[in-house]
Amino acid sequence: MNIKRPIPITDLDSVDWWSAVSRHEFVCARCSDCNVWRWPARAICGACGSMTWEWQELTGNGTIASWIVNRHGFGGAFPLPSTVVLVRLAEQDDLLLPGGWAGSADGVDLSVGLSVVVGFEDIESETGDSDHAVLSWGPRHG
């Protein structure tokens, strides 16, 4: 059974981030005053309180902080097995993003601390449009 990925449900703070991902661009909100990155995007800097910020491009590099392997379908909602990774971005230790894993479906090729690089997976909506994408991480070589 081919289970389609759920379409991201965006909000007014996140819609620009998802639009960037759909163009295969990997960005993050960053404070214009103290340069601290923040995730998810929001209107204020939790480090310095500044309201001035901008989207900046990320390197796409990170390390595996953790991962799970779905073995139970929770009512048929998930393909089995399927792996979800939690990636710590290279830019800042407290930036932790969930994402798909482009490697083995059962995650046997994963370990905590493994170097990874971002990729993108286009997903189709119910109407067959492919104007959405999600993160798909893979091993970083060299």
């Binding site: 991201p8 449900i9 965006t10 998810p40 799970i68």
Partner: peptide
Amino acid sequence: IEFQYQSPYWFAT
């Protein structure tokens, strides 16, 4: 707000 970043990966429960 975080849920939207999880659910597309079947990361929900």
